[in-house]
Design a binder for these strands. Sequence first.
DNA 1: CGAGCGCTTGATTGAGTTCAAAAATCGTGG
DNA 2: CCACGATTTTTGAACTCAATCAAGCGCTCG
Lengths: 191, 191
Amino acid sequence: MDSILDLLEINSEDATQLYASLKSSIQKKTIPKGTILQQQGEPHTKGYFVKKGLLRSYTIDDKGKEHVFMFAPEGWIISDIESQAMDVPTELYIDAVENSEIEILDRNWLNGRKIPPQIFQSSGHKLLKRIAVLQKRVIMLMSASAEERYQHFLKTYPQIVNRVPQKMIASYLGITPEALSTTKRKIFKKK
Amino acid sequence: MDSILDLLEINSEDATQLYASLKSSIQKKTIPKGTILQQQGEPHTKGYFVKKGLLRSYTIDDKGKEHVFMFAPEGWIISDIESQAMDVPTELYIDAVENSEIEILDRNWLNGRKIPPQIFQSSGHKLLKRIAVLQKRVIMLMSASAEERYQHFLKTYPQIVNRVPQKMIASYLGITPEALSTTKRKIFKKK
DNA sequence: CGAGCGCTTGATTGAGTTCAAAAATCGTGG
DNA sequence: CCACGATTTTTGAACTCAATCAAGCGCTCG
């Protein structure tokens, strides 16, 4: 686990609101597909608000294997919350899956001092939602088969399914691309 | 840590304020080992602050298998954040692993309306930490072997290891009790 | 003090991985 | 806009780790 900011997923309405309160420290950027915004080991994580395009965060384990932690389409913020909350170097890479327009929030973007209470309060609810998503993910990883996980992913992230390579979805689900391919064939046969 | 109020790490003035806003809904209880506080399917979750003892939350999947989601020793609050944030019936059972003294917070305990903004802000950091823990857990579940997970659990929760049955630890790690037994044997042989 | 629960051990099974290679798709330059 | 090389996806076979099934041991607590 590299950074705490990557963990945060908030929706576009709230992100827009938050943006207004932070604009002084915001830096806009247009980046091509494949751009790496942050790498494992960097001392601090930043927040990346996606105006257009798609980012993802992921770790690379000691065997060199990638594990996608989250995707962030338009209107989302992606960051490494663990790095931020625990004040440790980030464990997460963040890169662009598509050509993207982003706004970079400085490393204190989630720091209470910078954010007006009423907005923090509303973003507090976002934190709860983020916890809810992670809770569900943990339960899925512990108890669900590859097929169940994929079905759940289809339901939960229909807007992402067709925009990212299969191998990244497989990585998000915690299985190999080969296993995902087999799973899809099995699902298709059922129908 | 004597009370829920201490968990929020707030000064006495704020504490008094918060206490006033919450006391109507706090209910103290002493419960024996095995008491089930909340069951899957109940429309609302509550918050349980552990003064003494140990609680856990878990799901039971369609094959009847238990999956421990978290443990809560002294000073922790346990609840179903997903149920609360998404306003859906709870998926989690919560019960007592040991005889425990608890304070029960009504189902709106995390609701911003009830809590003064400056206090909510301080608890915001706690939410971030909780997200950080879940982030780590997801990454462990995706990338680590049974042995690595167990080693990580030993490091992270030394205060819990000797207080809960092996089968619950196995369940928390996402493996069977048999596999945990084998894993421990392997670790022991190494030394 | 014995019945049941929890832990361990071993044998078998199975879902998913690894490895290899072919088929499909993508993207870039001419 | 096409063509060709690179990347991604699929398919298949062999293998691996943990799950399942089954049996025995040892504690505890009723």
